[in-house]
Structures are given as C-alpha cells and as structure tokens.
C-alpha cells in the first residue's frame, strides 16, 4: 500500500535557527504513528508543516507528500483543498481553538457546510444542522441539541475538546493530526478523550499522527513511534520495541523519566 503521508528529509529553519533537521517518516493509510519528544523539540512545527501552515518567518525544505500532493512549495489554493479532506488537526488547548464569539453548533456547522458544498451535496441550514447534531453525538457529547446553542466558555475543557474533534471529523479526513490533545485536561477527562480518539480512528479507518510528550499516553494510542530531539529524529519503530527496549540514550532517558513519574503516581505503565 502506498503511504498516505511521506516526509522526506524535512528541514525547517528561521533566518537565525535550524528548528527541524532532516526529518523523515511515513504513515500508511489507517496507521497510527506517535511523535514524541520533549518540549521545544519541533513536534508542533512538524505538524503545521504537514498542511503548509508554518509561520511566514520560517522556511521548509525537503519533501512532504500528503495524499499524493507535494506540500512544500504548493500554492494556497492547493493547500486549502488539502486541508480537511486529506488531513485535519486537533490542538492542544481546546479553549483557544474555538472562536469565543460563535455558538458551538455554528462553528461545527461552518466546516460541515464547506464539506457538503465541496462534495456537491445540499447544504441547506437543516441539512447542516442534522450533520452537526450527528457529529456532536458521535463525539459523545450529551444533549447535542442544547450544546449546539452554547458558547465555548460555557463548556468544560473536555467538552470543548470533543467539539474540536467533531470539527476535525466533519471532513472525514484520511489523516487525523492530534497535537497533544489531552495536555490541558485532567486525568479522567484525558482518558475519555484518548478512548474517543482511538475509537473514532478505528471506526473511520483514519490514519493518526499523535503528538505528545507523555509516553504512557502515546504507548496506549499508537502502533509506531518516532522520537524527536532538538529537531532531529533519534529513533523510530513499533511502540513495544522502542518503549520497552529503547536503543537511543535519549529515548532511554525519556522512558526512564516517564517510568519514575508513573511509579510515583502509582499508575501502571
């Protein structure tokens, strides 16, 4: 099977600094890849580069092929067409990822309407509303009809993240990118959101790029991991191999730190 995403010798740099260097990895359709690394290692930048959303001040070199399209050097029109159907992203902070002045139902509705138009389906208000409610119940939000009418600040963090997931799902993307989607949430909510993402990815047969610095979280969610350190790939392979017998000293230290932390918390690895 040809890969859905192939990143080949990707480098990202500002004028002053090299932020990501020679990064290569690929994701097959339906495959789940974890990208781990400490804070500042370039995980978020990589995820933005995949859909051509790097800040203006940065330049990317190398190659990123997403669903058959070369992203680096692509024009805005090509990129807009790619964002959504090919890849959708869930962000770390669910409050700021939603427009504070727009009712939740409308925010999801905007994406739904765009997709319906894109696919040449009727996009009347009732048609959109039906899909919005479907999506909200798919992400297990209670009482979707009421929640569709509230503003983001009137929801809990977990509920907001579910809305963000619903927006990502609205496109039925081939690749779901989740950039530390549970970092801002408490442990119980975190587990629920992870279970939800896992379930949705399986149901829709989406590929998943799961970014995190929380190793136990990654371990339970993905098939393969890639370890990033200061913008460079240090190790990659199946979860069990990399996390149980890390080859690289850096990975070893990450795993050891996670283990100590977990023992202290009494969590099972």
């Amino acid at each position: 099977m040809t890969a859905l995403l192939t990143v080949d010798r990707l480098s990202i740099a500002t004028q002053a600094r090299q932020l990501v260097r020679n990064l290569s990895f690929s994701i097959a359709p339906g495959e789940r890849l974890g990208l781990i690394g400490e804070s500042g290692s370039g995980k978020s930048l990589t995820s933005l580069a995949l859909i051509g959303l790097l800040p203006e001040t940065m330049a990317a070199t190398g190659s990123i092929r997403l669903d058959g399209t070369e992203v680096i050097g692509a024009g805005e029109r090509q990129l807009v067409a790619l964002r959504g159907p090919a890849a959708a992203t869930i962000f770390q902070e669910p409050l700021t990822a939603l427009d504070p002045l727009m009712r939740v139902g409308r925010q999801v509705g905007e994406v739904v309407r765009r997709r319906l138009r894109h696919e040449g389906l009727p996009s009347s208000a009732p048609a959109v509303q039906t899909r919005v409610l479907e999506l909200l119940s798919r992400v297990a939000l209670p009482d979707p009809e009421r929640l569709a009418r509230v503003y983001p600040h009137e929801m809990s963090g977990g509920q907001r993240q579910r809305v963000a997931i619903a927006m990502a799902l609205a496109w039925r993307p081939k690749l779901l990118v989740a950039d530390e989607p549970t970092t801002a949430l408490d442990v119980t909510t975190q587990a629920e959101i992870l279970a939800l993402i896992g379930q949705l990815v399986r149901e829709d047969n989406m590929a998943l790029l799961f970014i995190s610095h929380d190793i136990p979280v990654v371990a339970g969610t993905v098939d393969r991991v890639a370890v990033l350190r200061q913008g460079e790939l240090v190790e990659a392979g199946p979860v069990s191999d990399v996390l149980q017998a890390p080859a690289d000293p850096y990975t070893r230290s990450l795993v050891a730190a996670a283990r100590t932390f977990d023992t202290a918390l009494g969590r099972l690895f």
Partner: peptide, 8 residues
C-alpha cells in the same frame, strides 16, 4: 489556525 486547518 484551526479554521485554516479545516480548509477556510
């Protein structure tokens, strides 16, 4: 960014 990611 989220809106752009979703193709706006």
């Amino acid at each position: 960014v989220a809106a752009r990611v979703a193709g706006s």
